[in-house]
Design a protein around this nucleic acid. Structure first.
Lengths: 220, 220
DNA sequence: CATCTATTCAATGATTTTGTAGAATAGTAG
DNA sequence: CTACTATTCTACAAAATCATTGAATAGATG
């Protein structure tokens, strides 16, 4: 049997990473882990899969060195191993939106009132926050906010938004964000706020994007 | 049978791209295509595989919208479909070097005299070129140079280097580059030059990286 | 030490992927 | 229209992947 050439070995090594990314469930796991570390059981609920299968997928990711583990009591906690992985996932998402009309369509179809739903990016947020009075709210579950959030953002989980609308200062534009481009919680949040006649818009970027861009969002 | 949720559909779409990347030969194809467009037959030689198999891999890449085709006479010419693909491949390579000691080791083992082989990045090149007299040479085959090259670079294919050493201006440091971090032609070039007592070093970045960074290399 | 429990391992069938050889195709060139 | 040729398609056997169930494990808890 012929031995592998240098080139073949290198590409085989590189394909360890891409192979680990090649499965939809594993992509979803990485996307979820980009926001916060989780135990196997929690992840299995998030991706609607048996614990055993989830564990197997996680081990594939671990073998590819894309995630780390640590023990906490009885639980094993999985987390993204470093920023180069966040970057990879982010580039994949970006390419998905650019090239697969389907992805864009799927997300847009979900929005109940597409035309009225203004959506901005991190950069636009920073620009606008200098001219306009803006309040940034993080509508993810509180735990994820606690694990890390965009600077100056206030935590109001989607589930509590209706009750807590009165906490929002009058006269400011509300910008809602959640887990990133693929997450639709912020869409729901904006719709709720609009129902209460509050000027609101969605930011597509989430905590991951902010962290990668390392930009400081200056308070207005 | 239960219908797929929105999330599942989105991640399935995204996995089209990562799945296409998950095979070593397809990664190699994308890496080669990052430098220049090629016909199927040429590519099949480059990756040492039957024409039929090469064609199949290319069709997977095309289905995932990572490459485009056009006809030229009897040949079908494949090319990278856009910059977001270059970015993806570049991020994968980068992650490979960071996380898989193997990749780094494989490339380094190839270098005949590792300690003496200074290696720089695009950024360092730009910095150094302001202080030092530097000449940048592109040691890829001439066709690839013609299809696109780093600004101010001179084409001296590796195969012609020995004969053409005299063309190099005296007193300047020679920086050699080829297809990028995974390519070892520049390593050979540096070793040849050192054998002739010429101060030479390798740049790890190639044309792709330069193009992505969109930076102008100012002539010294 | 014994119990409990989150996670991992092992075995299983169904499905998908791989690479190749040989046939078919589509478009060029004469 | 005919010959030619680069590419793609087909069929196939070997190998790998996938999700699940049920058993095993490792470590915490009492």
């Amino acid at each position: 049997m012929p031995t592998e050439t240098l080139k073949e070995q290198v590409y085989r090594e590189l394909s360890r990473a891409t192979h680990a990314l090649s499965n939809p469930k594993r992509l979803e796991l990485l996307d979820i882990l980009s926001n916060k570390e989780w135990s196997v059981e929690e992840l299995s609920k998030e991706i609607s899969m048996s614990v055993a299968s989830t564990s197997q997928h996680l081990q594939v990711l671990k073998l590819a060195k894309l995630v780390n583990t640590r023990r906490e009591g009885n639980f094993i906690i999985y987390s993204i191993s470093d920023d180069s992985v966040l970057r990879l996932v982010s580039v994949v998402r970006d390419l998905g939106f650019r090239k697969y009309a389907e992805v864009d369509k799927l997300i847009n179809d979900f929005k109940s009132d597409k035309k009225d739903l203004e959506s901005i990016t991190l950069e636009t947020l920073i620009t606008r926050s200098k001219k306009e009075k803006i309040i940034l709210i993080d509508v993810r579950p509180e735990e994820e906010y606690n694990a890390g959030h965009i600077e100056h953002a206030v935590s109001i989980p989607l589930s509590q938004l209706k009750k807590r609308v009165h906490e929002l200062p009058k006269g400011k534009t509300v910008v809602a964000y959640c887990r990133g481009p693929l997450c639709v919680m912020a869409v729901d949040a904006v719709n709720i706020l609009k129902g209460k006649n509050i000027k609101a818009l969605r930011m597509e970027d989430g905590y991951t994007e902010w962290k990668l861009k390392q930009k400081v969002f200056s308070k207005n």
